[in-house]
Amino acid sequence: MKKHDSHTDPSAATDPVDTALSALAAPRWSKEPDWRSFQERLMSTRSFGWKKLGVLALLASGCFAAGAAGGVAWERFTFTGVFHAANGQSVNVQGGAVRTDDGRLEMHLNSDGKIDVSGGGTMDITTPNGGKAKLITKPLDLSESKEVTLPDGRKVRVPKEFTDEQIKKIQVSPNHKGI
């Protein structure tokens, strides 16, 4: 505690008020910041939008493991769910997500049908351990994506910046006919 000008009086040493205040000021908090616990608290907040999810995924910063509040381990998870497109169409989805080194959450989806996602939409997902989340996706700008042909001949659309190496890793459901 700083010394205060109002207490330079030598008699202050015996003032019960100063004695009490000194006792109150004495304790120091020595515990280290519990960043992980704080992250879990953030994760457990309800009704976050896509933007916030991205923030939370970034906050996870490489140390977040399965079992987080809400049941979703944002570092890496698989999921099943339903995508509700802005135009009213819905489709069942399954996929996985992983946080990349640059902090983005990279998500791979397969669906059991074809719908127009260019207007964005929402996706209710459930992870294998029972975790649930709602993702809100922004409208997709098709000019930011490109069409590629997979080794088996099927065509899919991927972000424009995807490298050949990333494209090779894409896992597409054998039931899907491509675009």
Partner: peptide, 13 residues
């Protein structure tokens, strides 16, 4: 829906 890999970046501005 395309089975595309959606790369989603949501850093707030």
């Amino acid at each position: 829906m395309d089975p595309a890999a959606a790369s989603l970046n949501a850093t707030p501005e």
